[in-house]
Simulated scan of single mutants.
Amino acid sequence: MSSPYSDLGRPPLSAASLARALVRPGELWTEVRVVSSTGSTNTDVAAAAADGAAEGLVLLAEQQVAGKGRLGRTWISPPRAGLHVSVLLRPGRTDPDGHRPVPPARYGWLTLLAAVALRDAVHRLAEVSAAVKWPNDLLVGPAGEPATGKCAGILAEMVPDPDGAGPAVVLGIGLNVTLRADELPRADATSLALAGGTCADRDPLLRALLRGLADWYGRYRGAGGDPVGSGLAAAYRRVSGTLGSEVRVELPDGGTLVGRAIDVDDDGRLVVTPADGRPVPLAAGDVTHVRPAC
């Protein structure tokens, strides 16, 4: 019997099968592409967006050799051991259902929207403990135990719209699925297999993720990007592993801010209350790291 971590236990994804399941008239996903290897799916989709690609493009790479993370970090994984997917969204245009463009100030919620969809898909299918670390990480652990290992990251990038509308957004997601311990990129990372996940099949995980993304994006567009009216703010608070905890925020200038993470505001910024009691809103671009205060 082959090891679950062998190449035989890491079957390829089928673009045709995924397209049959996910591409439907009038729905969000319009095209599914699968490539064997690329530098960064975000870079590739950003280029497609600049060339006028339609909203709903999905690009998956069986392997990324220069995947992007926040602040110039990289995300590299063995072939077929994880999900490396980027999608193209155009919230700055009126959509086919007549929903008006979303104000760019609300674009910050798209990373959190993806985090909610990813967390729920992983928790439901793999049956692991899962929580979202603001702004863009998914933490997991064995069922019934704290979610402490980084299993996924999300990166949102804005691309100018060639037709002059609000910027397009490329959402990239990297999820460790069957990586073993010696394949992990960092000491605090893990994978669904290592966390005891009951599902390590990338196909159903991807389908659940993309369906969840489409559902939440539809609600977000229908509410004009309003996180409260769409229900997204409440959903994020439900799955957050950051809110309510004491955190140490490392800032780009080398300074730090220590306090309690009390909420996420209407623009998706983390609100931290330090010892002096004055809440401080922090956008993702304003911080280098958010860590437990202890």
Rank of each mutant, 00 (worst) to 15 (best):
A61W: 01
I262W: 06
A121I: 04
V258A: 15
R237V: 01
G277T: 03
P274M: 13
R33N: 01
G277R: 08
A126K: 02
R291Q: 12
D51C: 11
D44K: 13
G166F: 07
S36W: 00
R20I: 03
G172I: 00
P252I: 13
G255E: 07
A284E: 12
P101L: 04
R93T: 05
V34C: 14
P78N: 10
R238K: 12
A223K: 03
L192S: 08
W109F: 11
T148A: 11
A283C: 11
P281S: 12
P79C: 14
L88K: 08
L243C: 11
T38W: 07
G141K: 12
Y217F: 13
D44M: 10
R20V: 06
G164M: 03
R238N: 07
P96D: 10
L59K: 10
R100D: 15
E157D: 06
R260M: 04
A50T: 08
L270Q: 03
P78M: 12
A105V: 13
E183K: 08
G153S: 09
P135F: 00
G92D: 01
R124G: 12
G153C: 07
W134D: 10
G92A: 02
S77A: 15
R20F: 05
K150S: 05
T273Y: 09
G144K: 10
L8S: 10
P227G: 14
A53Y: 04
T38H: 09
G72N: 10
P167F: 08
V34N: 14
H84S: 13
L209T: 03
A234E: 14
D265T: 05
E127Q: 15
A168H: 09
R221Q: 05
A47G: 15
L171K: 08
A117R: 03
A21N: 13
G231M: 14
L175E: 08
L232M: 10
A208W: 02
D286L: 01
V239Y: 07
V34E: 00
D253Y: 11
V87A: 08
A48W: 01
S14I: 01
V170P: 09
G52Q: 06
R106G: 09
G224H: 04
G92I: 01
A214Y: 01
T74Q: 15
P11Y: 00
G254W: 12
R278K: 11
T178Y: 00
S77K: 03
D163V: 12
V45C: 08
D201M: 02
G174F: 00
V102L: 13
W216M: 05
A223W: 05
G259A: 09
P79W: 11
A293E: 07
G72W: 11
A208E: 06
P274C: 09
L89Y: 01
A131H: 09
P101C: 06
A293G: 11
I173Q: 03
G222Q: 13
A195P: 11
D95M: 05
G69M: 09
R119Q: 15
D161G: 05
A66P: 07
E62H: 15
A50D: 00
V140K: 08
S2N: 14
G39E: 13
E55M: 03
A15Y: 02
R221A: 09
G277S: 03
Q64W: 07
P146R: 10
P160D: 12
G212C: 08
G141T: 07
E31S: 15
S129H: 04
L139I: 00
L155S: 07
V249Q: 06
T41C: 02
R73T: 15
A195G: 08
